[in-house]
Design a protein around this nucleic acid. Structure first.
Length: 905
RNA sequence: GGGCGGUUAGCUCAGCGGUAGAGCAUCUCGUUUACACCGAGAGGGUCGGGAGUUCGAAACUCUCACCGCCCACCA
């Protein structure tokens, strides 16, 4: 017996456990079937489920459940990412709260140990939360990017790329995060629009201190590191200065004025101070002109002047300048400005808005800083990755994202992969006494290598840095399958089929997986393999006002709360229904509530079936149905099945959801169940039996078709409806996706269409004429042909019930004072004397007449157009002619009705 | 500056060259025993402006306006 109300919370955990216990999520259950594989975008081990995850994993789960039902051998590979910076920050904060020693006093080994402990106890919470969503991952294969095996893959990749010259060490400017004290990659830097000021500083000419060149800057404090001034070669204002020297105020250093194409005469004063060690553009200018790189900051972005050869060696550096030593860069800014002002060298200050780079994790201003780091030659690896998408080996859906991918890949910069952190994959590089580097998979191999290099045993010290988290994520599609070992899983499930992800990590992740996959994995013939054939890029989930959800805005919707309140199925269905391609999702609680109602609706339909003994029959064959209503609904099932199948194949999830929703609610519940009530209540046993079986069958099909979207309620009903019928062969999750042959009956469809129209039209007129629902009125069918008379008689019970009529009669003429409805060639007259407002009815008919007139005119115009008749395809013409015919027929009937109407009054 | 989206009913959005759609909201009616988390019905749109292609444009092209997002610029 089904409970009166559907209670998702009660069934969800029970069913999920059941599936897991049954091993339903496991790959390899169907060794002879075609494989279908998806790797999950590994969430951060520190993460908890947010709306983006909910959408991302709902889509994956739909695909996975769909393909599993289609009989494939499905692998949904789950796991988590060690998330270097994020995790290290979490544990450091924890240490701080516990008032324990910080990581530096703890030491590296102890700290890393502590992170592992944290991971064991609190990490991976998100894996549990994914289960609540219903994600049918093969948890027996769960992986973590710092697992032994995956770490092996990381080391191997690093070493090989190094030996191929695709990984190298370089000293250049990096994005330095002075809070996290590590380099970060370009992608981890966010430009933030900032309101600041533009200061105009005068630099006196060395030869003639009365003359000055004025530069404009947003970063006055960096002037201490200036080693030149650049002007545009064609700028007449500064032509005479080029080649001369100016004296850097506060420091006294003589620095040259150089001409450089990159200088924009329009910006600032057209003369720009050059600080090669602290600005990416200046770095290039400095390199072109051989300017000195003067580093004025330490790792905390504090001024570092004392002991700095560029300052202490110069006698003309004032004590006041040296007193700036140790100041934070922003404090230094104020002091430098004050010093310049007091010397009369700050000629102007303007308000100025500009983009300032911030660390996306730390949130503080990034400092370009000169350090030695490890880089990947991304441009080289990008070549085959670009080509693979060009050739369609990997396709993006929607396609427009390919452009984004190409844009970035074609001007890709070297990828800085070293991080000055402790949590992560330590770089397999060892240094000899003279600083020579040995990159090997193990320390022993490095020692061997060093031995043959030096000819004697030496001590090596390992590089302290770890790799960017995305380095290991880039290997995810094959490292999780066991690579570098040539496992059977790797052979069977790689390349994976679909990657489902958000556009925000196309660069971070998708592009890098393409590069690494193509570089390291080949087929038996040696042809490089893409990591996935399709990349489905989904929208971002925003709040109902379209704002990005964020904790600081307080507009975060917690998927788990929504699951608690409305059920996982409702949340999943909401996200699916709204997941149209190419647009962000604005999520509102109301929508979730609406789809919760949908689940309840289905539940109640199942209860209705149960109450009416609609039990599945063992040898049921929908093709053999006899009753028109049952033949019709079977055809509707088949159409719905095809629509859903196609929509999922095309990644149009919202359309798939709409198709199943519309069928269940508006076809099955609103019409079919209402139409069969008289049969079920009647005493024609054959009809009753057939209809019960048909209803049970349709409900079964609904559960099958709905399962990828709403796995819980469908599985629950699947099991509950097993009672009394033949035993279920499998749980729904493993049941086959329906395929039908021979369903769809044009005659039944036409008959039902006619009947449904009859009912709808009468209802509509009744409502418009304010006929009380309690008033049962007669209907008189006028001018009906034999078929319509047959139909009216055959469907008498259903029509009178649903249109609330007391009888249907036939006549040659409509009675006076009746509302009249055109249905095909016939007119349905509703004698409403006394109940109806005659004037109102007349107006109604006239209104319809006018509307019809306009429609007929429009279509007649099209058909009168020679071009249309000559060039439009035949089926379009045929449709137009048929429609015109129908409209004219209808117009004729209405005009007859109007005439009769005026005769009567 | 470079690139990519968006503008369709009050709101949120589908619409993939051939009769303008859904959900929600609104209004009217309804305790007909599956369901008020319901049922029946209704109102509401010259598809941002303009031009073009086409027999035919909400859809394709161009252009303008406004709104987003991404990337590159700390003068």
């Amino acid at each position: 017996m089904l409970e009166k109300t559907f209670n998702p919370a009660e069934i969800e955990s029970r069913l999920y456990k059941q599936w897991e216990d049954q091993g339903a999520f496991k790959c390899g259950l169907r060794p002879h079937a075609a494989p279908f594989s998806i790797v999950i975008p590994p969430p951060n081990v520190t993460g908890s489920l947010h709306m983006g995850h909910a959408l991302n994993n709902t889509i994956q789960d739909i695909l996975v459940r769909f393909e599993r039902m289609r009989g494939k051998d499905v692998l949904w590979q789950p796991g988590t990412d060690h998330a270097g910076i994020a995790t290290q920050m979490v544990v450091e904060r924890l240490l701080q709260q516990e008032n324990r020693s910080d990581r530096r006093t703890m030491g590296r080994e102890a700290f890393v140990q502590r992170v592992w402990e944290w991971k064991a106890h609190s990490g991976g919470l998100i894996s549990l939360q994914l289960r609540r969503l219903g994600a049918s991952c093969d948890w027996s294969r769960e992986r973590f990017t710092m697992d032994e095996g995956l770490s092996q893959a990381v080391i191997k990749v690093f070493v090989q790329l190094y030996k191929e010259g695709l990984i190298y060490k370089d000293k250049r400017l990096v994005n330095w995060d002075p809070k996290l004290l590590t380099a970060v990659s370009d992608l981890e830097v966010q430009q933030v629009e900032t309101k600041g000021q533009l200061w105009f500083f005068d630099y006196p000419l060395a030869d003639d201190r009365s003359r000055r060149i004025t530069v404009a800057t947003t970063r006055p404090e960096t002037m201490l590191g200036d080693s030149g001034v650049a002007v545009h070669p064609n700028d007449p204002r500064y032509a005479e200065f080029v080649g001369k020297e100016v004296v850097l105020p506060l420091v006294g250093r003589r620095i040259p004025v150089v001409a450089d194409e990159s200088t924009d005469p329009e910006k600032g004063t057209g003369a720009v101070k050059i600080t090669p060690a602290h600005d990416f553009n200046d770095f290039e200018v400095g390199r072109r002109h051989g300017l000195r790189m003067i580093n004025i900051f330490d790792q905390f972005a504090k001024l570092s002047l004392a002991g700095n050869a560029d300052f202490s060696a110069h006698a003309d550096v004032s004590d006041e300048t040296l007193a700036l030593h140790g100041l934070d860069r922003f404090e230094a800014r104020k002091r430098v400005v004050a010093m310049m002002e007091s010397r009369g060298l700050c000629s102007k200050v303007e308000p100025h808005s500009y983009q300032v780079p911030h660390g996306d994790r730390s949130g503080i201003v990034i400092e370009p800083w000169l350090t030695e780091q490890w880089y990947v030659n991304a441009a080289k690896l990008a070549e085959p990755a670009i080509e693979a998408v060009e050739k369609g080996e990997t396709a993006f859906v929607p396609k427009q994202w390919e452009k984004t991918y190409f844009e970035w890949m074609r001007k890709i910069q070297p990828w800085c992969i070293s991080r000055q952190l402790w949590w992560g994959h330590q770089i397999p590089a060892w240094y000899g006494p003279d600083g020579k580097v040995f990159v090997e998979e193990t320390e022993n191999l490095a020692l061997e290598s060093a031995y043959s290099h030096y000819g004697t045993r030496v001590n090596l010290t390992r590089d302290e840095d770890v790799l960017d988290t995305w380095f290991s994520s880039a290997l995810w599609p094959f490292s999780t399958l066991g690579w570098p070992a040539q496992t059977t899983e790797l052979k069977r499930y790689y390349p994976t089929d679909v990657l489902v992800t958000g556009f925000d990590i196309i660069f971070f992740w998708v592009a890098r997986m393409m590069m690494m996959g193509l570089h390291f994995i080949t087929d038996p013939q040696g042809k490089p393999l893409v990591p996935f054939h399709t990349v489905y890029i989904h929208a971002l989930v925003r709040d109902e006002k379209g704002q990005k959800m964020s904790k600081s805005k307080g507009n975060v919707m917690d998927p788990l709360e929504l699951i608690d309140k409305f059920g996982a199925d409702a949340l999943r269905f909401t996200l699916t229904a709204m997941a149209a391609q190419g647009r962000d999702i604005k999520l509102s609680v109301q929508r979730v509530e609406g789809y919760r109602n949908f689940a309840t609706k289905l539940w109640n339909a199942a209860r209705f079936a149960e109450m009416n003994q609609c039990v599945r029959a063992a040898d049921f064959d929908p093709v053999a149905l006899r009753l028109q209503v049952n033949r019709w609904i079977a055809g509707e099932v088949a159409r719905t099945r095809d629509a859903i199948t196609k929509a999922i194949e095309d990644h149009r999830y919202n359309e798939a959801a709409a198709a199943v929703y519309n069928f269940v609610w508006h076809v099955f519940c609103d019409w079919y169940l209402e139409l069969i009530k008289p049969i079920l209540a009647g005493d024609v046993e054959d009809a009753k039996t057939e209809t019960r079986e048909a209803t049970a069958w349709v409900l079964d099909q609904v559960l099958l078709l709905l399962h990828p979207f709403m796995p819980f309620i469908s599985e629950e009903l699947w099991q509950k409806t097993a009672e009394g019928g033949p035993p279920r062969e499998t749980p729904l999750i493993l049941a086959p996706w329906p395929r039908y042959r021979g369903l769809g009956d044009a005659k039944a469809d036409a008959e039902l269409r006619w009947t449904l129209d009859f009912i709808s039209e009468v209802r509509s007129v009744r409502a418009e004429m304010n006929v009380p629902a309690s008033a049962k009125i007669p209907a008189i069918v006028v001018g009906a042909n034999a078929e319509s008379r047959r139909r009216a008689s055959a469907w008498m019970t259903e029509i009178t019930r649903l249109a609330r009529l007391d009888s249907i009669a036939f006549a040659q003429k409509a009675p006076p004072g009746a509302a009249q409805i055109v249905l095909g060639e016939a007119i349905i007259a509703l004698p409403l004397q006394g109940v109806v407002d005659l004037q109102g009815e007349k107006l109604r008919l006239e209104k319809e007449m006018a509307r019809l007139g306009a429609d007929v005119e429009q279509i007649a115009g099209r058909l009168a157009n020679e071009g249309f008749v000559a060039k439009a395809p035949e089926h379009v013409l045929e449709e137009a002619r048929e429609r015109k015919h129908q409209l004219e027929l209808r117009r004729q009937r209405i005009s007859e009705a109007l005439r009769r109407f005026s005769q009567a009054s």
